[in-house]
Structures are given as C-alpha cells and as structure tokens.
C-alpha cells in the first residue's frame, strides 16, 4: 500500500547537516576539554621550538624568520592531525565499539550521507583548529588580520583531505591498534618532510619527490601563500592536487567504508 503523496523525508543538504549536527553537539558537550587544547598546543610549540630553538637559527627560511615559517606551517598540521584522529580512532569507535552508526542508519539517511557528513565534520574541525592557530599567531604578530582569516579555509580543505584519506585507512582496519602504523608511519614523516619545519628544497632529491606526492606539502604551500599574500600561478597546481585528492580518495573511502556499514 504505497502512500499517494510522496514521503517528505529531508533533502540531501539537511541529511548531511543532521550528521554534522550530531558530531558537533557531541564535540561541544565538553567544550573546555575539547576547545582549549587547540589553542594551547600551538602556543607551546611556538614557545618551545619557535622561540627556544629558533634563537639558534640564523637567517631565513623561504624568506621568512624561523618562527614565522614554523608558525604558518602549524596552521595546516593542526587541521591534519585533528581530521586524522577524528576519522581513524573516532570513526572506528563509533563503528565498532559504540555502534553509533547502527542507530544513525535507522534514521532517514543513506550510508553515503553518513560518510560524507563525517568528512564535512572533520573539515569543520580542521577549520576550527586552524582558527585557533590563527589566534595564537596573531598574538605573536606572526600573521596579520584580515588576511590571516583566510587560513582557516585552507584548514577546512586540509581537514577534508585528511578525512578522506583516514576513512580509507579505517575501512581496512580491523584492530584499533593498527592505526599506530598510519599515525607514526605516515603522518609523522609528513609532518617533518612536507615543508613545515624546514623547506622542502633542503631535502635530498628522493625525499623531495616524496614531499611532492603526499598531500600535506600542498596544503602548506597554500596556507603560506594566504598568510603572506603572495600568490603565484603554481598555487593552482596545489589547489588542483587538493581537489583531485579529495574527489578520488573520497570516492574510494565511501565505497570501501560502505561495505563495512551495509551487510
């Protein structure tokens, strides 16, 4: 007995919003413990490494003082780490331990809506973590408003990019401890060899190729350009990389993860 009028289930944008909203409410429930570290961490890093270690570094890196160089790099690593944690440990716990998705998938959303909502949420966390770094960098006089306010947008893209990649990894993982391989084996090297702590041009040639292949390098370039207001045509290449990465890896992640959510 099909009903004569169409069923008024919510449209796509609302369905994605409702997934995002769920994550946002759970995250902001512990505002202090979740919201303070994103500000403290870059502060500590700049004090310890930027000022402490930076004192011994003479000259500039890519034409910037060391603390400026490092500080602007942190804008995207913060987004990378939060998105990666959210979409590895966070997703895995929701999937396997808390069975949160079982409940959500009983509501009128599809599996694809759920996964894409998850990616958008991780992007939002990237945006927020980048924003926290912007606040600290502004305090140190490293970047200046209003152009610094573009950096969180790069943080959003970075978050989305690492969300797709982390979800793809999660789709293969059966044991939560295996994420250590991804975090230590992939994210940490990227942190050091993608032009965050020193320029990619200082790397030996084979590692330079690695730096060009991995996603973080492109996000770093983009965010430095935004902060310094120096836009070159080559940046379009970085943007294209990020867009293609999100599209391809995102599609793979949705496809793979779907298999774990629908039997």
């Amino acid at each position: 007995m099909r009903s004569s009028s169409p069923i008024p289930y919510p449209g796509l944008s609302h369905r994605l919003f409702s997934v995002w909203y769920r994550h946002m409410r759970v995250y902001t429930k512990n505002l202090l413990s979740n919201g303070l570290p994103p500000f403290l961490e870059p502060l500590l890093f700049l004090l310890g490494v930027g000022i402490g270690l930076g004192k011994y570094i003479e000259g500039t890196m890519d034409g910037m003082a060391y603390i400026d160089f490092l500080g602007t790099g942190l804008l995207v690593t913060a987004a990378m780490y939060t998105a990666a944690f959210e979409c590895t440990f966070g997703t895995f716990i929701r999937l396997e331990f808390d069975k949160v998705y079982d409940g959500m998938l009983a509501a009128p959303i599809t599996v694809n809506n759920l996964i894409v909502g998850e990616i958008i949420w991780a992007g939002t966390k990237g945006l927020f973590f980048s924003f926290a770094v912007v606040c600290v960098l502004t305090l140190f006089g490293i970047i200046h408003l209003p152009q610094g306010l573009l950096a969180p947008l790069v943080g959003f893209l970075t978050g989305v990019m690492f969300a797709t990649m982390s979800l793809l990894v999660t789709s293969f993982v059966k044991n939560i401890n295996h994420f250590n391989f991804y975090h230590t084996g992939f994210l940490s090297p990227m942190f050091f060899f993608s032009g965050v702590v020193f320029p990619v041009s200082n790397l030996p040639v084979p590692l330079r190729a690695f730096a060009e292949i991995v996603p973080l390098t492109h996000a770093v370039r983009l965010v430095r350009a935004v902060c310094t207001g120096t836009y070159r045509l080559a940046l379009l290449g970085d943007l294209a990389y990020i867009a293609a990465f999100i599209a391809i890896v995102g599609a793979l992640a949705v496809r793979r993860l779907r298999g774990r959510l629908v039997s």
Binding site: V26, K99, D102
Partner: peptide, 27 residues
C-alpha cells in the same frame, strides 16, 4: 522507527539531547 539490538545512545549527552539530536534526522 528502529530499536537496534544494542542501546547505542550518546553517553556524552543527556536524555533530552539524545532525542533532540535524533529529531534532526527527521527535520
């Protein structure tokens, strides 16, 4: 409406918030 085998409520939230979040799925 579906009641799954396991009670997958959001532990971080209170009773009202659990229902409120879920009502968003129905707009």
């Amino acid at each position: 409406g579906v009641v799954p085998q396991e009670n997958n409520l959001d532990d971080e939230l209170d009773v009202f918030q659990n229902l409120m979040i879920y009502s968003k799925f129905y707009a």
